[in-house]
């Protein structure tokens, strides 16, 4: 009965990603107008697609956590931790790259597991729990790096793995873009087509009712934290392989950037509402603004102003669209 109406203009207006789509279109047009032809050229597109891909891989699991009513800011130090783990094992000690990659992912999963366990056992808000692990992991990364290698920056040369994890395709497009596309497909299925997705929305709507309905809320929460930890570690290790070196402090900007992408993408901060496609649009919007500024004649310092205004605008617009979705009722005969 709803197949015809699901394609109508009205139903499009009620989707969580409508606001972020309009936002992306606006900034894209803006930078195409002021950035000249370079901005939309293949080289120009590569500059913001590369940024979007790295950010996007962490932004989606962060967005899912937010839909489930949680937050994870520890990714800010899991990214450099993953980077350093991979570089120390496969660069400094020269072990096979598969060991370095495996160890980095395992570390990300382990930190995620700790986050998840702390959140469900202590009932402390996940913002505080992950703020704690953010600092703890940052300190451990710095401490271990200096202890083991005597430096805060480690070189890693793994030509055999570059094609898969850290190369430029056609000289400009990072291979990470394909990993991002794969992640988008996986998470879209997970959130919108599988049963788990429904559980995540229900948990964000009302955790107690979700548990009473038989959803294993603890397990789902832990799993989501493990996924965000692993995704962050993946971004870290792919950066190390791409740039042939790892630094102990190269991830703090991801905390806010991912939250901005997710919120601009239409996810409700308090949980229960959002979409993977919206998060993708939010990530692209962020990347277009932060990179597009270099194509214009403006001083790059203004980019943060645009992002700030965009964030506020997106939240207001998303609120409006959500209200429209809530108040929607199909018209009776004669529509």
């Amino acid at each position: 009965m709803s197949t015809s109406s699901s394609l109508s203009f009205g139903s499009l207006m009620r989707r969580p990603e409508t606001g972020s789509f309009l936002g992306l279109a606006a900034v894209f047009l803006f930078f195409t107008a002021f950035g000249g032809t370079n901005f939309a050229s293949p080289t120009g597109a590569a500059s913001w697609l590369n940024v979007a891909a790295q950010l996007g891989i962490v932004a989606i699991p962060i967005g899912l956590l937010m839909i489930a009513g949680e937050l994870d800011i520890s990714i800010g130090s899991i990214i450099p931790a993953g980077s350093m783990t991979c570089a120390i094992i496969s660069g400094h000690f020269g072990l096979p790259i598969i060991v370095g990659v495996g160890a980095a992912l395992a570390l990300g999963a382990f930190i995620g597991l700790i986050n998840g366990l702390l959140v469900i056992r202590t009932a402390v808000p996940s913002f505080i729990v992950t703020l704690g692990t953010l600092f703890a992991v940052a300190g451990m990364t710095l401490g271990f790096s200096v202890l083991v290698t005597g430096t805060t920056s480690v070189a890693i040369k793994v030509p055999e793995a570059k094609w898969l994890l850290g190369d430029f395709i056609g000289g400009i497009y990072q291979v990470t873009i394909f990993w991002w596309i794969a992640a988008v497909i996986f998470w879209t299925f997970f959130l919108h087509a599988s049963r788990f997705g429904n559980w995540i929305f229900a948990m964000g709507g009302d955790k107690v009712s979700a548990r009473n309905a038989g959803i294993p809320t603890d397990r789902v929460t832990i799993m989501l934290f493990v996924c965000s930890g692993m995704s962050a570690a993946f971004v870290g290790l792919s950066q190390a392989i791409l740039y042939n070196s790892a630094q102990v402090s190269a991830g703090q900007s991801y905390i806010f950037n991912s939250i901005i992408s997710v919120v601009v993408g239409g996810v409700l901060l308090t949980g229960g509402y959002g979409s993977v496609f919206g998060i993708v649009l939010g990530t692209l919007t962020f990347a277009v603004v932060s990179q597009g500024i270099y194509f214009t004649g403006f001083d790059a310092n203004w980019a943060s102003l645009i992002i700030g205004v965009l964030l506020l605008g997106a939240v207001l617009m998303n609120n409006t669209f959500r209200k429209m979705a809530l108040s929607y009722a199909p018209k009776k005969a004669g529509k």
Partner: peptide
């Protein structure tokens, strides 16, 4: 209905989704 932002179908089947 305790899941105001879910669709009628989805909230009806929370925890027992038909697949």
């Amino acid at each position: 209905g305790t899941f105001p932002l879910m669709s009628i179908g989805r909230s009806f089947f929370v925890g027992r989704e038909p697949v």
